[in-house]
Deep mutational scan, measured.
Amino acid sequence: MDVFMKGLSKAKEGVVAAAEKTKQGVAEAAGKTKEGVLYVGSKTKEGVVHGVATVAEKTKEQVTNVGGAVVTGVTAVAQKTVEGAGSIAAATGFVKKDQLGKNEEGAPQEGILEDMPVDPDNEAYEMPSEEGYQDYEPEA
């Protein structure tokens, strides 16, 4: 019985440690998101679009440190934060509304985080759909 109880105690310690790591990862992701939003706020009209992409990228980098179902929630929060940063930029006159959601080359930025393969159960990952990809044929 002692062996059984000791095993359960060790398992509990492992769960607590994993929860603490997840909590730490979420806190880091939130900190990076805040950094990115402050970065966007300090940019001029020309830099705002690039700044919004930076927020998304920093958040995406930190999301990889967070495991399990938390990833889905962090990704949703990050996307809403990026959308909010863009709205703030438009409201303050840093950028025109028609410039939001495009990178410096004018290509749409939507789907940055949505296409990231995420499995809350950590069982399997699927690649994003290939609808947006084109076949590449090298020139002879």
Rank of each mutant, 00 (worst) to 15 (best):
M1A: 00
M1S: 00
D2T: 03
D2Q: 11
F4Q: 00
F4D: 01
F4C: 01
F4N: 00
F4Y: 09
M5L: 00
G7L: 14
G7M: 07
G7E: 04
G7A: 04
S9Q: 10
K10W: 05
A11T: 06
A11L: 13
A11W: 15
A11M: 14
K12H: 15
E13K: 06
E13Q: 05
G14P: 01
G14V: 13
G14I: 14
G14T: 15
V16I: 14
A17H: 06
A17L: 08
A17P: 00
A19G: 02
A19K: 02
A19Y: 15
E20L: 07
E20V: 03
K21P: 00
K21Q: 05
K21T: 04
K21G: 00
T22R: 01
T22S: 10
K23R: 08
K23V: 05
K23W: 15
Q24V: 07
Q24R: 12
Q24W: 05
G25Q: 15
G25N: 04
G25P: 00
G25R: 14
V26F: 15
V26P: 00
V26N: 00
A27W: 12
A27M: 15
A27G: 04
E28V: 12
E28H: 05
E28Y: 04
A29D: 00
A29H: 02
A29C: 11
A29K: 05
A30Y: 14
A30K: 02
A30W: 06
G31H: 04
G31S: 12
G31D: 08
G31R: 12
G31I: 05
T33Q: 01
T33Y: 02
K34F: 14
K34N: 01
E35K: 05
E35M: 14
E35Q: 04
G36S: 14
G36F: 05
V37F: 09
V37Y: 13
V37I: 07
L38Q: 06
L38D: 01
L38F: 10
L38S: 03
Y39P: 00
Y39A: 03
Y39W: 09
V40I: 14
V40R: 01
V40T: 01
V40H: 02
G41D: 00
G41P: 01
S42G: 08
K43P: 00
K43Q: 05
K43S: 03
T44E: 00
K45H: 02
K45E: 00
E46T: 07
E46D: 08
E46W: 05
E46S: 09
E46C: 05
G47C: 08
V48G: 01
V49W: 15
V49I: 13
V49H: 14
H50L: 14
H50F: 13
G51L: 07
G51R: 08
V52I: 08
V52P: 01
V52Y: 15
V52M: 14
T54F: 15
T54W: 10
T54C: 15
V55C: 06
V55S: 01
V55H: 01
A56R: 10
E57I: 11
K58G: 00
K58T: 06
K58P: 01
K58W: 11
K58R: 11
T59W: 14
K60S: 04
K60I: 11
K60M: 15
E61I: 06
Q62T: 08
Q62I: 08
Q62L: 06
Q62C: 07
V63H: 01
T64C: 12
N65T: 07
N65R: 11
N65M: 07
V66C: 09
G67S: 08
G67F: 10
G67K: 05
G68L: 13
G68H: 12
G68E: 12
A69Y: 13
V70H: 01
V70F: 03
V70W: 14
V71D: 01
V71F: 09
V71H: 04
T72P: 02
T72M: 15
T72Y: 03
G73Y: 07
G73S: 14
G73A: 14
T75I: 11
T75M: 12
T75C: 10
T75E: 03
A76Q: 09
V77A: 09
V77S: 02
A78V: 12
Q79M: 08
K80M: 10
K80H: 06
T81W: 05
T81H: 04
V82C: 06
V82S: 04
V82F: 12
E83G: 06
E83N: 12
E83K: 05
E83W: 10
G84S: 10
A85P: 03
A85C: 11
A85Q: 02
G86E: 10
S87Y: 11
S87M: 13
I88R: 03
I88G: 04
I88N: 02
A89G: 07
A89Q: 04
A90L: 14
A90G: 01
A90I: 05
A90E: 04
A90M: 08
A91C: 06
A91W: 11
T92L: 11
T92S: 05
T92D: 03
T92N: 08
G93T: 05
G93H: 06
G93A: 14
F94Q: 04
K96L: 11
K96E: 13
K97T: 11
K97G: 09
D98V: 03
D98F: 14
Q99M: 11
L100R: 07
G101Y: 13
G101K: 10
G101A: 04
G101D: 12
G101Q: 12
K102S: 01
E104Q: 07
E104A: 09
E104F: 13
E105M: 08
E105R: 13
E105W: 01
E105A: 07
G106A: 07
G106K: 08
G106M: 06
G106Q: 05
A107G: 11
A107N: 09
A107R: 07
P108H: 08
P108C: 11
Q109H: 10
Q109L: 04
Q109Y: 08
Q109S: 12
Q109N: 00
E110F: 13
I112M: 07
I112L: 05
L113A: 13
E114M: 03
E114G: 10
E114H: 07
E114C: 15
D115P: 04
D115W: 05
M116F: 04
M116T: 15
P117Q: 13
V118A: 09
V118Q: 02
D119L: 09
D119G: 10
D119N: 05
P120F: 09
P120G: 10
P120S: 08
D121A: 07
N122G: 02
N122W: 07
E123D: 10
E123I: 10
E123A: 04
E123V: 15
A124S: 07
Y125I: 13
Y125T: 07
Y125L: 09
Y125R: 06
Y125P: 09
Y125G: 11
E126L: 06
M127T: 04
M127E: 15
M127W: 05
P128D: 10
P128E: 05
S129G: 06
S129P: 10
S129M: 12
S129I: 06
E130V: 15
E131C: 12
E131G: 04
E131I: 10
E131D: 12
E131K: 07
E131V: 10
Y133L: 11
Y133D: 15
Q134K: 11
Q134R: 12
Q134H: 04
D135V: 10
D135N: 12
Y136D: 02
E137F: 09
E137N: 04
E137V: 05
E137L: 06
P138S: 08
P138F: 07
E139V: 10
E139Q: 04
E139W: 10
E139T: 03
A140N: 11
A140I: 07
A140H: 06
